[in-house]
Amino acid sequence: MRKYAIIGVGHVGATIAYTLVCKGIADELVLIDTNVGKARAEQLDLQDAQARLDSRTIIKINDYQELADTDILFITSGNIHALDHASGNRWAEFEYTQHIVQAIAPQVKATGFNGVVIDTMNPCDAITHYFQRATGLSRQQVFGTGTFLDTARMQKVVAEVFNCDPKNISGYVYGEHGESQFSAWSTVQVNGIPITTLVDQYHLDLDELEAEARHGGWAVHSGKGYTSFAIATCAVKLSEAVLADARLACPVSAYNETFGTYVGQPAIIGKHGVEQVTKLALTATEQAKFQNSAKTIIEKFHAFDEALGLESADERQQA
């Protein structure tokens, strides 16, 4: 029995639900949203599709107690309109998503949920960290989509230059799921060939490619008012890696012991969530960018803590 739950059935949550049901990935699916009418409507719409699918999914709504035996929990709530005038700043949602976590974390914790949590909420790294801390779940169990999507955008941009399939582009985008992220070009290969050896031959401007990939989400948002398909695809793929214990090597927002924060980095995803964080040999410039991105997340996260009169578990231990 593969049991999934989604908290927040807006654009992303509903797309994840549709994907899980249509692909026959979930045997049971729980939809939770403060807008009961929306949750009920999504349930009915998905149930109406069942007679035309080759699989069957039991769909329930708005019952936190169902999380007690849930395998995968997606947290996808947010206020997308906060980004309408944010000029590329995902932190604009933090004012809203921090309060959402304050509301849902105690309810999740009360159920005894002990599965794996995949966060898509923005700002992804900070919210993932806050949710993990608020629920008391392990850092292994809780991770965010992070730069998994940003890496896919980098793969698309590079693939277009070389007229190849994006899956033939390997490598990673590191750091914040936000403006301080960066493409670690030392890790990127095109059809197995390091991209750094192709710069002169193809007259590549790596800074320009990086900027195009970083702003890809905003190009989508400016056209349709939100993003949904790509991030939902990333979230579902990560969940499948967990249930299959695939030990998938990919970038996610995972806790970094060195920096003391969740941040986008390569990791191995398996049945327990983040099985391990992969440390690759970055160039000195890339390492500096990685440290700077983590610092950006920490500073903004601590500012949030101070505003609420909170302190981190690490700070309490030090005291």
Rank of each mutant, 00 (worst) to 15 (best):
residue 132 Q to P: 01
residue 196 T to D: 02
residue 156 K to E: 12
residue 169 I to S: 00
residue 188 V to G: 01
residue 114 N to Q: 13
residue 226 Y to W: 09
residue 208 E to D: 11
residue 127 I to L: 13
residue 106 P to M: 01
residue 209 L to P: 00
residue 173 V to F: 02
residue 156 K to V: 07
residue 104 I to Q: 06
residue 141 Q to R: 15
residue 165 D to M: 03
residue 208 E to F: 15
residue 128 T to F: 10
residue 132 Q to N: 09
residue 129 H to Q: 14
residue 172 Y to H: 11
residue 208 E to A: 15
residue 204 L to H: 05
residue 118 I to T: 11
residue 214 R to Q: 14
residue 97 T to P: 00
residue 127 I to A: 04
residue 102 Q to N: 14
residue 143 F to K: 07
residue 218 W to T: 10
residue 140 Q to K: 12
residue 172 Y to T: 07
residue 108 V to K: 05
residue 114 N to P: 07
residue 119 D to M: 01
residue 161 V to I: 15
residue 180 S to H: 14
residue 97 T to H: 00
residue 118 I to R: 06
residue 199 V to H: 11
residue 108 V to D: 02
residue 117 V to L: 07
residue 176 E to Y: 12
residue 136 G to W: 07
residue 146 G to Y: 06
residue 126 A to I: 04
residue 206 L to W: 05
residue 189 Q to S: 13
residue 91 W to N: 14
residue 197 T to N: 11
residue 111 T to D: 06
residue 142 V to R: 14
residue 174 Y to A: 04
residue 156 K to W: 10
residue 198 L to V: 14
residue 187 T to P: 09
residue 211 A to F: 13
residue 126 A to C: 10
residue 216 G to A: 14
residue 153 R to P: 05
residue 209 L to K: 03
residue 96 Y to M: 07
residue 143 F to M: 05
residue 109 K to H: 07
residue 152 A to F: 11
residue 201 Q to W: 02
residue 110 A to T: 10
residue 145 T to A: 11
residue 177 H to G: 05
residue 120 T to K: 07
residue 182 F to P: 06
residue 140 Q to A: 02
residue 173 V to S: 09
residue 214 R to I: 14
residue 111 T to W: 08
residue 215 H to T: 07
residue 211 A to D: 15
residue 167 K to F: 05
residue 231 I to A: 12
residue 147 T to I: 03
residue 161 V to Y: 08
residue 165 D to C: 12
residue 218 W to Q: 10
residue 152 A to H: 11
residue 120 T to D: 07
residue 98 Q to F: 04
residue 99 H to N: 15
residue 180 S to Q: 14
residue 123 P to Y: 02
residue 144 G to T: 00
residue 132 Q to V: 00
residue 131 F to S: 03
residue 203 H to M: 02
residue 145 T to C: 12
residue 226 Y to L: 04
residue 151 T to G: 05
residue 150 D to R: 08
residue 169 I to D: 00
residue 151 T to A: 08
residue 231 I to S: 12
residue 209 L to Q: 01
residue 228 S to P: 01
residue 193 I to D: 09
residue 107 Q to R: 15
residue 103 A to I: 11
residue 208 E to C: 12
residue 120 T to R: 04
residue 94 F to M: 14
residue 123 P to L: 08
residue 141 Q to M: 05
residue 143 F to C: 05
residue 117 V to I: 15
residue 154 M to T: 10
residue 113 F to W: 05
residue 226 Y to E: 10
residue 204 L to S: 03
residue 92 A to E: 07
residue 188 V to M: 04
residue 196 T to E: 10
residue 107 Q to M: 11
residue 131 F to T: 02
residue 145 T to S: 06
residue 225 G to Q: 02
residue 123 P to E: 04
residue 139 R to C: 03
residue 153 R to S: 13
residue 141 Q to L: 01
residue 191 N to G: 05
residue 191 N to S: 12
residue 202 Y to A: 11
residue 184 A to K: 12
residue 102 Q to L: 09
residue 129 H to P: 01
residue 105 A to C: 08
residue 143 F to E: 06
residue 121 M to R: 04
residue 211 A to G: 12
residue 110 A to F: 08
residue 139 R to L: 00
residue 196 T to Y: 03
residue 226 Y to N: 11
residue 233 T to V: 00
residue 168 N to R: 15
residue 205 D to G: 04
residue 211 A to T: 14
residue 106 P to T: 06
residue 130 Y to C: 00
